[in-house]
Each structure stands twice: as C-alpha cells, then as structure tokens.
C-alpha cells in the first residue's frame, strides 16, 4: 500500500492524542488549572491535528460531513461518530478541570472509553480489509490499542503504566511483523485464483494492460520501500520502544521524559510507514506482483 504521509501522521498522532485523553479521562494525572489546560491542549492538538491530516488525502474534503451517515456498515463512519463524541465529552470534562478545578468523574470515564473506542474504530478500518491479509488479523487492533495506551501513558507521565504497556506494544508489534510476513501466502490467494487460470497450469503475468502506471499501481503496489524494511524495523523498535523504556527506568527528569516522547514518536512514525509500505494488496497479483 502507498504510505501516504497524511495517513501516517493521522494514525500516529490521533492514536497518541486519544491515548492521552484516555489517561486524562480516568484521572491519571488529574491536573487542574493551567496544568490541565496544557495537558488537554497537547491531547487535542494531536487528536484533532491527526484527524485534520487525514482529510488531506480526500478528493473532496468539503463533503466530509457526509461521512457520518453510514455508521451501520462503515467503520470509517463509526470512527467519525466516536471521535467527535470523544472530543466533545472530553472538552466538557476538561473545561471542568481547567476553569472550576472540578473533575466530573463519570464524564471523564465516558470520555476515556470513547477515546479508546476511537482508536479501535481506526484500527478496524484496516483490519476489516480481506484484500490486505497483513492487516486482516487481530494483531492490528491489538497493536493500535496497546500503542495508544502505552504512548498515552508516556505523554501523561504515568511511568508505572507506560513501562509495561510499551513492552506489551513492542511484543504485539513483533508478533504482527513475524506473523504478517507469511500471511499473504497462507491465505492461499495467488495469481492462479485471481485469474481462475491456476487449474490449467503455472500462471505468469505476460503483459500489463498499459505501458504506463495507473492509480491501482500507485495506491496498492508499493515495492520499492520494502528493501529497507529490516533496518527500519530495528530502528523503530529501538526508537519507539527500547529508548523510551530505558529513559523511563532512569531517575525521573523532564529532559529524559521529553527525549522519551520524541524517540517514541519518531519510532512509531517509522513503524507506521512500514505498516503501509509493507502491506500487500491482492490486486498486485493481477500485475504479477504481491
């Protein structure tokens, strides 16, 4: 799949932002006044900024409001509803903390649940696709959720939870990579079933439909980037999980915490790039690729 910067930024930052909102919603930390304002501002910048970035890849962003209509079948539509609900509930909860120093606990808990649900709906947009076997697996929502919780805990300064959650996320990430590499082949979809000609013999793509490229190849058949995938996997493991975990284990300092956040974001951006670049769409089979 084409690793579009807008979607990489969207999934990374909205995941972190909603993760932070989750921790704020359950009152960990439970700041008030200006400190609360800063925490909520960071969370909203990430969550809303991510959502806005995702509209950049739309052909007609001015019609985005229509995306709320099909919640019965579409995960993208459900994500639109849940994310707006989470942001609205958390704005009321946050206002209580900032202006009145008052935590409305039930509101915070509802907001926290909606924030996690938002990340779950985002992950289901990818998980539901049978056409991309690498994503069509429980490890996709597990990774998105554990990352959001772990990254959110890191931003919220909840070291006690960030350490185990980031370790869990790292484990899920390794599982996703290791099982994901063979899943396409494991599903039994190949050029033979794609063309229906597999029963006659060995099928080889002889000639593509056009000499030039097209939307399908640009969007779904991304092969160039996979060459460096091993190096990038190591880099994203080190930056996204290893370094933050190490820095969190040192005696607390704001510089170390800041470094941990920067390293985490950089590592997750790299792994999200891989998430798209390494994902093989079955349509590539028609072009003799995988």
């Amino acid at each position: 799949m084409h690793p579009a910067p807008s979607v990489i930024l969207f999934t990374t930052f909205s995941g972190l932002g909603f993760g932070l909102l989750f921790w704020l919603g359950i009152g960990m930390p439970g700041p008030t006044g200006w400190v609360a304002f800063t925490f909520f501002a960071i969370a909203y910048l990430m969550a809303v900024g991510g959502l806005l970035a995702s509209t950049f890849h739309l052909g007609h962003p001015e019609r985005a409001i229509k995306a709320f209509s099909q919640w019965k079948t579409s995960w993208l539509s459900r994500e639109a509803w849940v994310s707006v609900a989470a942001l609205l509930v958390m704005v009321v909860y946050g206002a209580g903390l900032v202006f009145w120093g008052q935590a409305t606990v039930p509101l915070g808990l509802i907001g926290a649940a909606l924030s996690l649900l938002t990340v779950a709906t985002t992950s289901m947009i990818y998980t539901q696709l049978k056409t991309v076997p690498r994503w069509n697996h429980w490890s996709t929502p597990a990774l998105f959720l554990s990352l959001s919780l772990g990254g959110g805990a890191l931003l919220a300064g909840q070291v006690r939870f960030a350490l185990p959650l980031l370790s869990v996320a790292a484990t899920v990430q390794i599982i996703a990579w290791m099982t994901g590499d063979g899943r396409f082949r494991g599903r039994g979809t190949d050029i033979g079933t794609a063309t229906g000609l597999g029963t006659l013999g060995r099928v080889k793509a002889f000639e593509p439909p056009h000499t030039g490229t097209n939307y399908l190849l640009r969007e779904f058949v991304h092969v160039v980037g996979r060459r460096h995938s091993m190096k990038l996997r190591l880099l994203s493991l080190l930056l996204g999980y290893g370094l933050p975990i190490l820095l969190l284990m040192l005696p607390f300092s704001h510089i170390y915490a800041g470094l941990a956040v920067v390293a985490h974001v950089a590592g997750i951006l790299a792994s999200r790039w891989l998430f798209f670049a390494e994902a093989e769409h079955v349509v590539g089979l028609y072009y003799g690729r995988q």
Binding site: G59, T131, A194
Partner: peptide
C-alpha cells in the same frame, strides 16, 4: 456524495 477517501478501492480485490 463521494468524498474520494479511496477506501472502497482498498476493499475491492479486483482493482
């Protein structure tokens, strides 16, 4: 009504 999100093309196995 199409917003051009491209998700339908992602979901189609046949291109």
């Amino acid at each position: 009504d199409c917003i051009g999100c491209g998700l339908c093309a992602w979901a189609c196995p046949y291109g």
